[in-house]
Amino acid sequence: MCQAQEYADYKLSDYKLPDIKRSSLDFKLNSDGSFATHETSDNTVYDIKGAIDATFNRYCTTRKFIGDQSARIYFAGFKNNSTRDENGENYKQSNLSTEISYMNDSRFYIRPNTWFWFVGGDVSFTYYQNKVKETEKDLGILIRPKLGLGWGRIERVQDARQAVYLLDKFSDYGLMKKHLSNEEVNRFAQLISTVKNKRFLDSRLHLIDEITTVDSFLVANDYIRKEGAKYFTTLYDYWLYGDLHQRKSGFEVGLEGMPEYNYYTCSNFNQKNHEPGITVSLSAEYEKPINLRWQHSASLNFMFLYTHNTFEADYADKTVYEQSLEHLQETFFRLRL
């Protein structure tokens, strides 16, 4: 029978994620409305509103590539009608909000865990229209690509932490048949990483598949003795609550350039705002898991920012205001023990 805390010497920093590809689509739809009649004021009021929000996320990690992409489409509307306002006149209001955005962060490793170059950025389009007696329209466009070069790699190791938590707890209850080597612990942790990223439409069925897969692995390799409810209650408990905090390991330094263009216009007073700019940053990040409960984190970031803002509006007598901003942002340093 194995004794407790047999895996205290396991190093989370030795864990490497398996190849993972995960895609998810979150779709939200909501609507509500109200209708009321006030006999004393001879007034009828109704309003209706709704929203559609769809977000697609894709994450991929291999030894030569790490990619994180996200796309979002959002529509929302509102309409209100009252037969009598405070002046005894009909009152109508409607508005529409739209947002379309895309974000990409892709890293291509020239050699695993060494030099890499990264591309990506984000782009967004927003539109807002509000109509009472007159119609107000706002439009915003943001384009911000990025390109950079870096060295090193930050690895996500919370699945290895969860694997060791499970093995330690099984050992506490005398359920382990043998002590697992570091290689076997890594295989168990990689199984956890893989099963967590399988695609399911039903989260309940996903949980059932996760528990079944982990149980089958432990039984097939003759690692565990399933005696009573203690085994399954422990497995469920540490599966649901054993990975609540993200853990990382590694060192990474990068230099990136990010030009951007921000455009905004509003129909009120014909306001227009043009703001091109560029950001250059040099950053470093260090993550060191001391043990299952303690983590050292540090980051350093130097940033240079330049923007040129051009603003014009009718109330400014068609005068164009221009402003340039150029500064070296102060160093940011973070240390967590």
Rank of each mutant, 00 (worst) to 15 (best):
Ala160Asn: 14
Ser101Phe: 01
Trp115Cys: 13
Lys137Phe: 03
Gln162Arg: 15
Thr114Phe: 01
Gly148Pro: 07
Phe188Glu: 05
Thr114Trp: 00
Val119Gln: 06
Lys137Ser: 01
Asn182Cys: 02
Ser94Met: 12
Thr126Ser: 08
Glu155Gln: 15
Arg107Lys: 15
Ser97Lys: 14
Leu142Trp: 01
Arg107His: 13
Gln93Gly: 07
Ser94Ala: 04
Thr135Met: 09
Thr135Ala: 13
Arg144Phe: 00
Arg161Ser: 12
Phe118Thr: 02
Ala160Thr: 00
Tyr165Met: 15
Asn104Cys: 08
Phe170Thr: 05
Met103Asn: 12
Tyr173Gly: 11
Phe108His: 14
Gly152Ala: 07
Glu134His: 11
Tyr91Glu: 08
Ile154Arg: 04
Gln93Ala: 12
Leu166Lys: 11
Asp172Tyr: 09
Tyr173Thr: 01
Glu183Gln: 10
Ile141Asp: 00
Ser106Thr: 12
Thr135Trp: 08
Arg153Phe: 04
Gln162Asn: 11
Thr114Cys: 06
Asp159Gly: 02
Lys178Arg: 14
Thr126Leu: 00
Trp117Asp: 01
Asn113Leu: 09
Ser124Asp: 03
Arg107Gln: 13
Ser124Lys: 04
Asn130Thr: 01
Asp168Ile: 11
Ala160Ile: 02
Gly140Gln: 07
Leu149Lys: 07
Tyr91Lys: 11
Ile141Glu: 06
Arg107Val: 01
Gly152Val: 04
Asn95Gln: 09
Asp122Gln: 10
Leu139Asn: 05
Ile100Ala: 14
Pro112Trp: 10
Tyr127Glu: 03
Lys177His: 07
Gly140Cys: 00
Phe170Gly: 01
Leu147Cys: 02
Gly148Leu: 06
Ser171Asp: 08
Tyr102Arg: 09
Ser101Ile: 01
Val164Ile: 15
Pro112Met: 10
Gly152Tyr: 02
Arg156Ala: 06
Lys146Tyr: 09
Gln93Ile: 06
His179Lys: 15
Asp172His: 07
Gly121Asp: 03
Gln93Tyr: 13
Asn130Gly: 03
Lys92Asp: 08
Leu180Glu: 05
Gly140Ser: 13
Glu99Val: 08
Ala163Phe: 08
Val123Ser: 06
Arg111Asn: 15
Ser97Leu: 12
Asp138His: 12
Trp115Gly: 02
Asn113Gly: 13
Val185Tyr: 05
Lys177Val: 03
Asp168Thr: 13
Ser106Val: 11
Pro112Glu: 09
Glu155Phe: 04
Ser97Pro: 01
Val123Cys: 05
Tyr128Cys: 04
Asn182Met: 07
Gln158Glu: 13
Leu142Asp: 10
Glu134Ser: 14
Ala163Ile: 11
Arg111Val: 15
Arg107Phe: 07
Arg187Val: 06
Arg153His: 09
Phe108Asp: 06
Arg144Thr: 00
